[in-house]
Design a protein around this nucleic acid. Structure first.
Lengths: 155, 155
DNA sequence: TGGGTAAACATGGGATATCATGGGAATTCA
DNA sequence: TGAATTCCCATGATATCCCATGTTTACCCA
């Protein structure tokens, strides 16, 4: 099944609410998670968000380290401890928390970016910059993978 | 099974809709994907479109990197974040999004070009130019493959 | 083989539903 | 008891659905 795809920018209202894009809500509904699992991206001024599928990926990653080790504690602290579960209201809106505000630096608009198994929350301008960079890097990464892969990559 | 083949040019109506060529619709129906998966071509002023088969190609690319890493996020942002899933109405039409309009520069007509596992959306005139170039390049590429492989059969 | 009929398809437009957004009222929690 | 949150309803813009039409292509039968 298709996951989170495409990107959308919505306005933040006076109460600090934003509509989660309808296509993303549909994915979340299928996923079945109650609410929205969020945590700060470790490498971008963005917040990662999703449901059970995202949670499953986090578990997969942490399980690569033995429990009770310093590494495991560290990773768990970042991915579980530093997360929040936000509520989604009846109209499909979420309320931007202080954590999200600090992490992203957003003010009156929010950009939602689909990354298949999760989506990210960005301040629109920062996303535009990241996007330009990502496009360049992606092209380089795909080329580096070599021509062996199908049809030389998605055109 | 046969994929997307041949090319067609259809008119855009006042609401920004175009009929997807019937042969392409038949391929999409067989593919089973709900809607139309689209994203900008990285090397042409065209948009790539398709269904599960195209999506599978993209997933193959991103699966080469571990999820939650910086590399994966970047690639996913470029491939999924920059994609759109367009709806197809009951009459087999799609609505041209702003993204497609910007990428292709199309105004009142759309050319659909079959590329087997996906098809492309072009502004008609740009496609004509590209086509002329592609024919020359194809000839050169085939020649470069050498005479040994032609006719393939055991002598 | 020619004409007539039917089917498929691109296209147009009005009616309807969806969605983002705004704001008041009720409720909760400290 | 007051500030913040959650619930509920209103609204305008947009997208979607559904039906109509004309034209071309495919089909059939005399």
């Amino acid at each position: 099944m298709a996951g989170f795809v495409s990107h959308f920018t919505n306005r933040l209202d006076a109460k600090g609410r934003v509509s989660i894009p309808a296509p993303f809500r549909a994915v979340l509904a299928r996923d079945g998670f109650e609410g929205l699992y969020c945590f700060n991206s470790t490498h971008n001024p963005a917040v990662d968000a999703g449901g059970n599928q995202l949670l499953a990926e986090i578990k997969t990653q942490t399980e690569k380290f033995a429990k009770l080790t310093s590494d495991h504690d560290m990773l768990a602290a970042a991915l579980f401890g530093d997360s929040e579960i936000l509520k989604v209201d009846g109209d499909g809106r979420m309320t931007i928390s202080d954590m999200i505000r600090e992490q992203t630096g957003l003010s009156d608009q929010v950009t939602f970016v689909g990354l298949d198994y999760k989506f990210q929350i960005w301040e629109p301008q920062k996303y535009r910059e990241y996007r330009a960079e990502a496009q360049k890097r992606a092209l380089a990464m795909l080329s580096a993978l070599g021509p062996a892969s199908s049809q030389g990559g998605p055109a």
